[in-house]
Write a protein that binds this DNA or RNA. Structure first.
Lengths: 229, 229
DNA sequence: CGATTGCTTGACCCCCATCAATCCTCGTGG
DNA sequence: CCACGAGGATTGATGGGGGTCAAGCAATCG
């Protein structure tokens, strides 16, 4: 069981504002967990007993829509917290969390979070900031989803994937998703994703190598993402 | 200038957690403002100096998309706070606020809010709850926008309008919007809204009387909203 | 090495964005 | 009181986007 004081990941989220005392206490009460690719961390409607801090791996937050298809609302990774708002507002989650890759996470009990909020003003402010960012993210996404064409949405998604997860030395996107998962982000059918991707390939905007995707022409991709093509 | 202590509207939002002392202080430093239909309370990208508490009227929070069309992200009304998250996280707004009807609002300076957060734990918790609700709302909307057909989105919008704003004694929706505004919520062209509305009318699901809309068959409307028709 | 899961392509057709023209309605000024 | 203009509402025609079903292929795994 690793110590929170020495955890690098912690620097990436609101936990960075905790004092040494708070951290050492946290070490003693947190729990470490492993989730394998495809496993579910929690389920839509579940009542969470604390937050999860991601040490490694990638997780998708999904919501089942009326038509039975999963919509990926957000991808989270190293340093992100899961279930903060349910824990803080003491309400069931509205999303399910599913491991996209193998993951290491720390579980932090609700009491600790509530405690930190009521005694550490820095922590509170930081949580407000991160929730604010979350809302902004949702709003931006909302406008994208409702106003852009599928092509533009897919372009935006590819740019986002590179921005958030980087690329390998060969230039391909580090995070490898199934076509179905990409479709879940874009909000369309997998066939549409395939067709659009192959069109981008023909247009030399991206390069397809099996399931690996490399972006070749960033400017063009950005233009497509803005609907200017 | 009315007193905060006696303000009924305050009961509807996080300000209800303030103490008598905090309220009487608030009375002395808040500002009252009137906005006429169509006026803009604040603009996307603006740096807010505090939050607005809506005493009466309706306001739309909009975001300009790349294609130049306004997307309505949220409608707010009596008791809602505007600009909470920008004020708390000290960042520019990502949305513009425009009066849909004439409005009375109170302006509360940022200092007061920050102050309340750092001294009043109840206020903090309540703010977390309301921001949590806001995120949940955005997520739900996101799934609706990305997965549903226009018809289903419009049906969902009509149900939402009745839920949030009620109906008149004659059964018509209390909040009267232009077709263009409805289109801005649904995320489509005004012509599509018109065509879909008239189709709902023919199907006896709603009744159209000029710009006034009455819902006749709730069950059917809910089914359409779920894409089960 | 079968079987399940994911990928790809084709065909079909409906939904909806867009442009254009007309009608309606209401507020304003003469 | 009426004329007129502007913004909103409506209808039509048209074409492309993308949803859906079906079938075949590749890859991964027990």
């Amino acid at each position: 069981m690793s110590k929170c004081e020495q955890c690098i990941v912690r620097q990436l989220n609101s936990l960075k504002t905790l004092t040494k005392e708070e951290l050492s206490h946290l070490t003693s009460c947190k729990g470490d967990q492993i989730f394998k690719k495809g496993e579910r961390i929690f389920e839509e409607g579940e009542h969470l007993k604390g937050v999860y801090c991601i040490k490694s791996g990638v997780c998708k937050l999904v919501k089942l829509s009326a038509n039975g298809k999963d919509q990926i609302v957000k991808l989270t990774t190293k340093g992100d917290l899961l279930g903060e708002r349910s824990t803080l507002s003491n309400e069931p989650t509205n999303l399910s969390a599913v491991a996209v890759t193998d993951m290491e996470v720390c579980f932090i009990p609700q009491v600790e979070i509530i405690n930190a909020v009521s005694t550490n003003a820095n922590f509170t402010i930081d949580m407000f900031k991160s929730m604010g960012k979350s809302i902004r993210h949702s709003d931006d996404l909302l406008v994208n989803m409702s106003q852009k064409t599928m092509k533009a949405r897919l372009a935006a998604t590819l740019l986002m994937l590179e921005d958030d997860f980087g690329k390998e030395s060969d230039g391909s996107l580090s995070l490898v998703l199934t076509r179905e998962e990409v479709a879940g982000i874009v909000g369309t059918a997998t066939e549409s994703v395939i067709r659009l991707l192959s069109q981008f390939g023909k247009d030399k905007i991206i390069k397809l190598d099996g399931k690996h995707i490399s972006i070749l022409d960033y400017d063009m991709l950005r233009m497509v993402s803005d609907g200017l093509d």
